[in-house]
Simulated scan of single mutants.
Amino acid sequence: MGEGVGVRVPADLPLYWKICLINGAVFLVGTLVLVLSPASVSSRPLLSEVAVVSVGLAVMLVTNALLIRRSLAPLDRVIRELEEVDHLQPGSLPEEGSGPVRGIARAVNRLLDRLEAEQRAGNAKALAAQEAERHRIAQELHDEVGQSLTVVLLGLRQVQDRAPAELVEELALLRESARTGLDDVRRVARRLRPGVLEDLGLTSALAALATDFAQHSTAPVRRSFGPGLPPLTPDAELVVYRVAQEALTNAARHADPRSVELSLTRQDAAVVLEIRDDGRGFAPLTEGSGLLGMRERAALVDAELTVTSQPRRGTTVRLRVPAVGTVR
């Protein structure tokens, strides 16, 4: 019934006047029907006359409601689309309807475009600052803490060579503790600043990451790298590395897996990273700081991140990154 009723109004008419025009048209038509029809109302209305007026009023109200609903339906769709907008990848709203509704959609789309651009710029600055801080801390760990522990190791070695026999074993234990501490410092420095990524490339950095995970976990890591991977920007390579690092860290801390699979393959003009474990899994999916950080990094390079998990069936993290010169 609502689709069959048609009242044409100017496309650029403000919403307030558009509703007023619809109401006026409905009441005008209702008045003409009452005036021109043979129906009449006496000074003492009969029950049949009251029924006729009531039916006419009801028809007018229903017609008015259907026309307004039809006019405001695109606005309701815009509101629903706004409620489902992803704060990391806002996208755009459908510019439906006419007049004020289409104007609202266009204005919101312009606002979303500005917010997305500002968010990308802000995320880029924040992540760049984060990487710079990681680099500074790694450098300090390597140059200061690492060198200090090296001096301690050399000093303990000299003391051990001149120490009495009853202290040699104890000094050897101290040297081993200092050496373990030095290895830990170097490992943390490598995690903070993946020098192998800059020196040897993404696949070598991921291989080193998988090896480091296997050394500190009971679960073996099966890794596979597809041939002919398309080139990625340095920022995109860093995002792939950090997402893999976060996914493996989460698997070690929370999943207790028996095995982990890490793969880097080509899919059309994109590179796909996938980390799959057979651990305890989780449900429902919660946006913790680790997952949120991965999503923010993925959005920065226009990548798609999907995380799927089921209790006792493991977790899969999948990152699809467009290659250089492609647009998703």
Rank of each mutant, 00 (worst) to 15 (best):
L156T: 10
E237D: 08
V324P: 00
L264A: 02
E144W: 14
A214S: 09
R186K: 13
T203D: 06
E131C: 09
L264N: 05
I19P: 02
R222V: 14
D86L: 08
Q267E: 15
D184P: 02
R8I: 10
V196S: 11
N23K: 10
K125A: 07
V317H: 04
L319S: 00
G290E: 13
Q160H: 02
L171W: 13
A65F: 15
G6P: 14
R8Q: 11
S54V: 08
R175H: 10
T180V: 12
D76F: 15
V327M: 10
L319T: 04
V29T: 06
G288D: 07
L182S: 10
R175L: 09
E84A: 12
A189N: 04
R190S: 13
E176C: 04
N250V: 03
V159M: 11
R328C: 01
Y16A: 11
A205L: 00
R44Q: 15
A73P: 02
T63F: 06
L115F: 08
I22A: 00
R253F: 05
L46N: 07
R190N: 15
A210T: 06
L273N: 03
A165W: 11
T265D: 11
E84L: 15
R8Y: 14
E144V: 12
V145N: 05
L46A: 10
R8T: 09
A251D: 07
L21S: 05
G99H: 05
R69S: 08
R179N: 07
A124E: 11
A189H: 05
L182G: 06
V188A: 12
V55I: 14
T211H: 12
L36D: 00
Q119F: 08
Q158I: 06
R190M: 12
A178C: 00
G103N: 07
R276I: 07
R242D: 10
A269M: 08
D86P: 02
A163F: 04
A51S: 06
P322V: 03
Q267D: 12
L200E: 13
P74W: 07
S309P: 02
G2Q: 15
L156C: 08
A11R: 14
E296K: 13
A207L: 11
P311C: 03
D235S: 09
L206I: 00
G122C: 01
A117E: 07
E296M: 09
Q139E: 15
L197C: 04
A303E: 00
R69N: 09
V145T: 11
R258T: 15
S289D: 15
V301T: 02
I68D: 09
R222F: 15
A65W: 14
G4T: 06
I22N: 01
P14Q: 05
R106M: 04
V5A: 10
L171G: 02
D268K: 12
G2D: 12
A117M: 01
